[in-house]
């Protein structure tokens, strides 16, 4: 256990450097997020009265889909290059490397998405009262999405075309996050306190943080051991 911080930071530095080397790949989920949000006013209605009640839901659904899209590549390259095999067979607990990978992934997808949310919320006529609560909810909720999604990504890592299956595996698990996230906006608009729901999201994030890395590590070792 004394090695744990070293294991984490070593992997973190490697992954961060790799991610920064390909800024295009980092920008893709973000561009997708923007694009989905652009489609809604065009597909539903550009009028404020129509958009305002939908805005929080649109932001969250776009965030769900953008996260989902980014998940396929989470462990894919490691597997193709054989680094995943080394990690699993190395003997050090895999959980720390997994956590580092997910942290880098969240910094590259969930965090920018959260930071963009106030801006895009304004474009979608999100009521002002909901702006900061929704941003905070995204900050707490997107880590859960990445953690749960990581389980799906690890389970499907050995599949060539696992995209649709991945969606089927993880989207149902995202539903509680979506519900809590959107209700934060509704409560805020109604002038009710949002603290309790945000606390639930925080509790969910903590629970996911301490449980899912083990499931992910287990799934990755299955993929490596059984080829």
């Amino acid at each position: 256990m004394a090695k744990a911080p070293g294991l984490f930071w070593g992997q973190f530095r490697r992954d961060a450097a790799l991610a920064l080397r390909q800024p295009g790949e980092l920008a893709n989920p973000l561009a997708f997020f923007l694009l989905v949000i652009t489609l809604f006013p065009l597909g539903v209605s550009p009028e404020t009265a129509v958009l305002a009640p939908l805005a929080a839901g649109v932001l969250w659904i776009a965030a769900l889909l953008a996260t989902l899209l980014s998940l396929e590549g989470l462990f894919r390259r490691d597997r193709d290059e054989g680094t995943l095999e080394q990690l699993v067979l190395h003997g050090d607990p895999l959980v720390f490397a997994v956590l580092a990978r997910l942290t880098v992934h969240w910094l590259g997808t969930g965090l920018p998405l959260t930071l963009l949310a106030p801006l895009l919320g304004a474009m979608l006529a999100l009521p002002e009262a909901a702006r900061w609560p929704v941003t905070l909810a995204l900050a707490l909720g997107t880590p859960i999405l990445v953690l749960l999604g990581g389980v799906g990504a690890a389970l499907t890592v050995s599949l060539r075309a696992g995209g649709v299956l991945l969606a089927l595996l993880v989207l149902p698990l995202f539903i509680p996050v979506l519900i809590l996230g959107v209700s934060v906006a509704e409560l805020a608009v109604a002038g009710l306190p949002t603290g309790a729901v945000l606390a639930w999201l925080g509790a969910g994030a903590a629970l996911a943080l301490v449980t899912t890395p083990f499931a992910i590590a287990g799934a990755l070792s299955i993929a490596v051991e059984t080829g």
Partner: peptide
């Protein structure tokens, strides 16, 4: 592989 992967998924579910 399928069995153990499904087991993980079933538990998460």
């Amino acid at each position: 592989a399928a069995g153990r992967a499904c087991a993980i998924l079933a538990i998460v579910g």
